[in-house]
Structures are given as C-alpha cells and as structure tokens.
C-alpha cells in the first residue's frame, strides 16, 4: 500500500530525498548523486522493479535549473507507480548518473533523452543518438529548437555534392520530370522534360 507511512519510511534517513506531491502517483525529488543507490533500493527492497519510463522536461531558459529528468517506476506488488524527479545541476552541460547498470531498460531511454535534450548520463555503456543520426548537431526537444527544424547537411556528403541539395534526390531524378533551373530541388518545381508548351502557347506541330 502506498500510504503516508510508506512515504515516511521511504524518506526517513535519506536526506537526499524530498516529497513533491502525491496526486496521480507518489512523486519524490532525488539528488543526482544518490540516484543510482536509491533506484537500487527501490528495485531490491520496495518491489519497484519495472522502470516503465525515463524522460526529461526542459523548464526553459529562464529557469534556475533548466532540465529535470523524470523516472517512472511500477511495482507489481503495490500495483502502483512511483515518480522520481532529478534536477540536473548544470544548465550548460546537464549531466546525471546513469541508472542503466541497475535497470537495463534505462539504456535506450537514456539514449533517447540524450538525443532529444543533450543530457549526459555518466557511466552509460553506449551513450549515442538513437532517433536522430549520429552527426546531428542539435537537441530537438529543447525549448529553443524551432518546430520547423533547422536545415543541416545530409549525413551522406557524396549525395549532397552531386545534387547540390540538402534533400534526398528524387527517385526519378533526370527522368521524365526535371527540376528547373539550378536552384535547390526543395524550392524548384518539377517539370516535364519536353515542356516547352503550355495552355497558352500551344504545342508546336
């Protein structure tokens, strides 16, 4: 049962924890340096052994501590969720310890959080991008990143060299339809190759 006694016993003697709220599920703050030990305790002693989710929230540029990492656990015994908030200490190079040694499930979640927010997870076995490609320079879920995205060079430099474009070549490039002019393919409209006639100037006989 997740009641006040449970919360009291969980917080007792752990000054790195603080109670946040208990609205949809028990939510506690945890200091980053004790996160690994505490999650181990949760798994082994408190039956919260299913890490269902790990993500981050960007509180915006003005916030004193900009990034917080949010972990959700589920207990098969209590049939209840538990949420941990961890505030990342550094706004410029946010970094917290990785829990993937305790929960293998965290491995991919942490890679995704790194990919989207640029939060570093210390001692992660394989911290590289997972959804975006490896050379991608931005962190798209940060608040300052625009919805429309920022154009970046293609990962395949040879393709970009031939096409002179930042987009993939069309499957029928050079085929029955060609992009007019020397402008970028993303801006030029494709036209039929022999289209020297229109509705107004009729096709010469």
């Amino acid at each position: 049962m997740i009641d006040d006694d449970f919360v009291k016993s969980l917080l007792n003697g752990r000054d790195y924890l603080s109670f946040k709220h208990h609205e949809d599920c028990l939510t506690i703050n945890c200091l980053p340096e004790s996160l690994v030990d505490f999650t181990k305790h949760l798994r082994d002693e408190e039956t919260f052994d299913l890490l269902v989710d790990l993500t981050a929230v960007d509180h915006g540029d003005g916030a004193e501590k900009r990034f917080s990492v949010v972990l959700h656990f589920y207990s098969l015994v209590h049939k209840s969720y538990l949420r941990i908030h961890v505030l990342c200490p550094d706004n410029e190079a946010p970094c917290i310890p990785s829990v993937s040694s305790v929960f293998p499930a965290a491995n991919w979640h942490e890679r995704e959080t790194f990919d989207m927010f640029g939060i570093n997870f210390l001692d992660h076995p394989n911290l590289k991008r997972i959804l975006m490609w490896d050379d991608y320079p931005y962190f798209p879920l940060r608040k300052e990143f625009p919805l429309a995205g920022i154009e970046v060079p293609l990962p395949a430099a040879d393709v970009a060299e031939v096409t002179g474009a930042d987009v993939d070549p069309a499957p029928m490039m050079g085929g029955p339809f060609v992009a007019s002019g020397n402008s970028r393919m993303s801006e030029a409209e494709p036209r039929a190759k022999d289209e020297s006639w229109t509705e107004k100037s009729e096709k010469p006989l």
């Binding site: 989207m116 991008r129 997972i130 959804l131 975006m132 490609w133 798209p140 879920l141 990143f145 919805l147 995205g149």
Partner: peptide, 12 residues
Amino acid sequence: VLGYLHRGDEKI
C-alpha cells in the same frame, strides 16, 4: 538502429 520513422511527435 532506430529512428527511420522519427517524426518528432513530442515536439509537435
């Protein structure tokens, strides 16, 4: 290797 169908739903 994932991400070939990434559309950024969370950003949207």
